[in-house]
Nucleic acid binder design. Structure first.
Lengths: 188, 188
DNA sequence: TTGTATATTCGGCATATACCGAATATTCAG
DNA sequence: CTGAATATTCGGTATATGCCGAATATACAA
């Protein structure tokens, strides 16, 4: 019974997937998300098609409420798409976005901008206040505020660049990068 | 008493700084770090020179233990540098790294690679296992595993590119990016 | 509209985290 | 080596988080 038909050797496939799913959970954790969110994404990533909440509960052993909220956050970050199939009543189905470049791009657009906005607003306000004050301290602080403003302007340029490219363009760009394999210095 | 000497108008400067410091705390939170870490970095960012633990305690109102651990994590992520001034005994001083490009580069090198390694390892292992199995499931999973591997190869290219450039080069690159201001389509 | 299948929200429990202050460890001067 | 100054670690407490199951809300079918 050495496989070739879907049913046998299911264990092998399952353990292989499990390894990746766990890595996704760990990665999710690195980004401050819950492990459950990572695992559930992983399950969807390998699923044959869209899964319902109950199927996800079945395959993950998480409570339905946990799965539900996980789907909300995954949706928020563009990792899954929610779909309602016709004739299926209220039942919702979830499908993994497998193009991570597209996820990254959209996360950059929304979340990335949150940081930029938070900092930029504070920096502008501080710049205004400090501009009206004439102590040495104020001048020094102002300079440091301006340094950060410059940095964020540059960051925004990069974000604009990245969010302006399609996944294919990003992938192509990556392929174009030549990784100079640490040559011995070329000083004759 | 409308300022011009360091002591007066200290309030103005303090509130301006405070706004930025709070924004840093919020940003730290976004990255899954503690607010205290963000605030303490902010204090160092605006400080005239290196500060000791006790000075940081003084200026932040956090307990010394809190400041100590915060300094450890800030150091870990290259946001501050610890220095021991000669003749100052055991006393340590902390100075903010103000070049955020350099911070970003070093964080990418260390932390960024953690994600890449975690995923890459799992993907390779899964690839091996799935390669030895011949079910339809295995073939499908294998394909999806390979997609992720391709993505991570590309990510590594970008990381290599970014970590290979100096802050000046990165800044210059940013300035070079033309932010096409959404032109009306150029189809004649 | 009502009933039914489904999704979301809420309260609670267990665990994890942030911070503090006290206890311990470390460094340097002498 | 000892002592004084400093840093780090540890245990405790209050708060936050992750997850569950029950209660509630919602959407669709008839």
């Amino acid at each position: 019974m050495t496989n070739n038909d879907g049913t046998s050797a299911g264990d092998e496939v399952a353990t292989a997937r499990e390894e990746v799913v766990e890595a996704m959970a760990t990665t999710a954790e690195m980004y401050g998300m819950k492990r459950s969110v990572g695992r559930l994404y992983g399950i969807l990533y390998f699923a044959d098609g869209p899964l319902s909440l109950d199927e996800l509960v079945e395959r993950s052993d998480y409570a339905k409420s946990t799965v539900s909220t996980a789907m909300t956050t995954l949706e928020r970050y563009y990792f899954v798409q929610r779909r309602s199939l016709p004739g299926e009543g209220k039942r919702a189905f979830f499908e993994a976005e497998r193009d991570w470049w597209s996820v990254m791009r959209r996360v950059l657009e929304t979340e990335g901008q949150r940081e930029v906005v938070t900092m930029t607003r504070a920096l502008e306000s501080a710049e205004r206040q400090l501009g009206e004050t004439n102590s040495e301290q104020a001048t020094d602080s102002l300079e440091r505020v301006r340094e950060l403003q410059a940095y964020y302007r540059q960051i925004e340029q990069f974000v604009d660049l990245l969010t302006g490219l399609s996944s294919e363009e990003l992938a192509a760009m990556a392929e174009m990068i030549e990784t100079e394999t640490e040559l011995p210095s070329d000083d004759r």
